[in-house]
Each structure stands twice: as structure tokens, then as C-alpha cells.
Amino acid sequence: MRLLESLSMALDGLRANKLRSFLTMLGIIIGIASVIAVMTLGKGGESAVVQQVSKFGQNKFMVYTRYDTEEPEDPNALTLEDAEYLPQVSPYISAAVANSYVGNTELYWLNKKKTVEVRATTAQLPAVQPTLHMVQGRFFTDEDDKNRRPVIVLEDGAAQELFGTENPIGQRVRFNDRSVVVIGVFKQEKVSFDFSKAKSAFVPFRFANELSENQTVSNIEMTAISKEALRPAMKQVKDYLNRKHNHKDYYEVLSMEDNIKEFSQMTGMITLIFSIVAGISLVVGGIGVMNIMLVSVTERTREIGIRKALGAQRKDILLQFLLESMILSLIGGLIGALLGIGISAIGFSYANIPLLISWETVLLAFSVSSSIGIFFGLYPANKAAKLNPIEALRYE
């Protein structure tokens, strides 16, 4: 019965000063909203990235030269022959492709032009990149590559912008002052948070090398025969390349799993830093609750004296003011939680990712807000409970 009476009096006290109560809750609202938004965006974004990137092949890995090596630069550290040789000698590798970035190049057809990101590669690319699907025509073959045939495969968006309703297959376009034939159109799945609008095109590696004598292999993408074979394949590739090209530790080999781990570590660190900042704002909000409750105790000294004179015990006064601070914190926590979820929803919507709410974070936020109410409200409530009723009645 005393609990209900104390709760009713606490609510009456808050209603009597609505604006002050709201301003007191503001620090809690901002702190809780920040914690929930940061942790939800961090953990939800990390989970979405893992799901998205996993589509690109868990057995896939890539080798490239280290940027921090102390060895002299070797332009022939990776070669087309390496990509062709490795699947033949390694029992762990099912396919490999050599890649080279040609550059952003303009394609011309009749009076139209389209800038595309051209990459030189080999015929095994569709086997290494499971997200690449041919929608028209075909991808180039080993024979096309070995014979340096002037052919090109366009991304569907680039083909549509360049040819409109015309069938692109068999059309000739100008590329680096050369006439090349469009033999295929592909569509490639991309991660939801990829905001790049650049369209891609692929040409045979040897044809690109004919256009530019300085065309070098930037990386080699490979696919292991199974997930269990991934690590042995990576080690074998690194050892082979160092031995063949007479290097000690010149190469970096990374799998999709490694990329996910690196991303998780990065997002985890960012989330931790922002959570600490948001936590500081919660502490500041708690100090605000304590300050206002001390003011409230001072303003209601005579009321406390009257209650004690009528028989209210110390624990009744303590409970009343403690409930006021807890209600302030919990209401602020509720509003902050809703605001934090709303901010997260906007962030996920902008990144085109389904909303993933971390309910553990919401529960933690409510636990923290109630703890703040108890911790920062305990001193003012205890001060009110210790007031001498005679001195309180004399207070002006």
C-alpha cells in the first residue's frame, strides 16, 4: 500500500513540473538513443556485411603484393602464367584468374558514349566470381584470350545506356582507338551498401596487354575446392610465388573470411569508441537527474516536514524521491530507446539493409537507465529522508 501511495505522490511531483521533468530526462534520452543507435548500427551492420559478403564465395581468396614490404618493387611479381599454372599443380585450387585494372574508359557507339570501368581478366572469371551471371551472349573463352581477340563483355546497365533497345550482341564499339565486338552482357550481384554507380566491362587479358605494354597483373583471384582446403591452398600459393619469383615475404594472401574478420574488428573498435562517448552522455544525464532532485528536495522541504509530522517514516520519504528519479530515468530510457531504434531504422534504410535490432542492447539500455535512476537518485532521496521534521517545518 505504501508503495502505491509513494508512486502516486512521485507522479504528482513530476506532473507539477512537466517542463523541468522533460529537460531533466533530456540527457538520459540523448544518452540512451546514442547507445542504442551506435550499437545497433554497429552489430546489425556487421551481421549484414557477413551475410552479404558470404554470397561472394567462402572458398574464395586473393593474392597480391604487399605494400609494406622492404624488398625492391617487382613489376613481374604476379604473372598471367602464375594464374594458369597454379590450378594445374595444386590439388587444393579449382580455378584462378589474373586481374588487371585498365582504367575508366569511354566506349563509343554511333553518336553515344559511356564511361565504364574496364578490367582485364581471363576466361575463368565466372568460375571464381559466383555472383557474375551472363544475361546475354557469352563470356570470352581461353581461345579468345590466347588469340588476343578484340572482344568485350559489358555490365547490363552499361549496355542498356549505350544501346538502348538495340541488341548489343555483335555490335562494334570504339575502345582506346580500337574497334571491339560486344560478345556478352552480364549482371553482377553487389552488396546492398555499395553506393558506386560505376559500370564495369571485361576484356581478355592478352588483348589488354597488346593495347598497353605496361599492363601488369594486380592480383590473382582463386577458389579452393572446399572450405577445408582454403588454408592449405593459401599457404601453398604464397610459398610457390615467393620461391618462383625469388622473394622472401613479398605476397599477401587474404580470404573472404579474413576480410570479414578485419571488417568486424574495425566496426567493433568504432562501435566501442562511440559507445564510450554515448556512455559519458548518460553519466552527464544522471548528474542532471541528481541535480534536479536536490533542487526538488530543497523546494519541498516544508512538504517533507509536514509528511513526517503526520507519521511518514524515513523509508517512505526515501521511497518517494527514489521513485521520482527512477521514473524520470525510465521514461527517458523508453523515449531514448524509441529514438535510437528510429535512428537505426533510417540508417539501415539509407544503406538498403534490413533493420536488425539488437534487443540485448535495448535491454542493456533500460538496465542502465534504471540503474542511473537508483544511483543518482539515492543521495537526494536519502538527504530528504534525513531531514529533521521540526527544522523542515521551519524552512522558508
Rank of each mutant, 00 (worst) to 15 (best):
R119D: 11
L282K: 06
V283D: 09
N388L: 05
S255H: 04
I29V: 13
R206F: 07
L19K: 09
Q320G: 03
N104S: 13
A127E: 13
G305A: 09
F375I: 14
H245E: 09
E143D: 14
K113R: 15
V237H: 04
Q236K: 07
S90R: 05
V102Q: 03
S226W: 12
L230K: 03
L319W: 09
S369C: 06
V180A: 02
I30Y: 10
N147H: 12
D194S: 00
P126A: 06
I36H: 12
N219Q: 13
I276E: 04
Q320R: 08
N59D: 14
M39R: 08
R149V: 10
L355T: 01
A159F: 01
S296K: 08
K199V: 07
K190R: 15
S196Q: 04
S100Y: 02
E213A: 14
S325Y: 02
S371T: 14
E106S: 14
R394A: 06
I93C: 05
E324F: 02
A365W: 13
A96H: 03
F186C: 07
F175K: 00
T105Y: 11
D74E: 01
I306P: 01
A201R: 04
D156L: 06
K199N: 12
L154C: 09
F140T: 07
K383T: 13
I374D: 08
I36K: 09
G45K: 01
I225N: 06
A37Y: 03
D142W: 09
F263M: 14
K43C: 06
Q58S: 15
L4P: 06
S358Y: 08
S264I: 13
D144G: 07
S367T: 15
E143M: 12
D258C: 05
A158S: 04
F139S: 11
E84R: 15
T79W: 04
K248V: 11
K55S: 04
G333W: 09
L364G: 14
Y251C: 07
A96L: 01
A16R: 11
G184E: 05
A208T: 02
I30D: 04
E161R: 12
A201S: 12
G42N: 09
E71M: 02
F22T: 01
I28V: 15
T24A: 11
S179P: 00
L154V: 02
L125I: 10
T267L: 15
S34H: 08
F163K: 00
V203D: 04
T121C: 03
G45Y: 00
R302G: 07
N382T: 12
R20I: 09
G373V: 00
L78F: 00
M25Y: 06
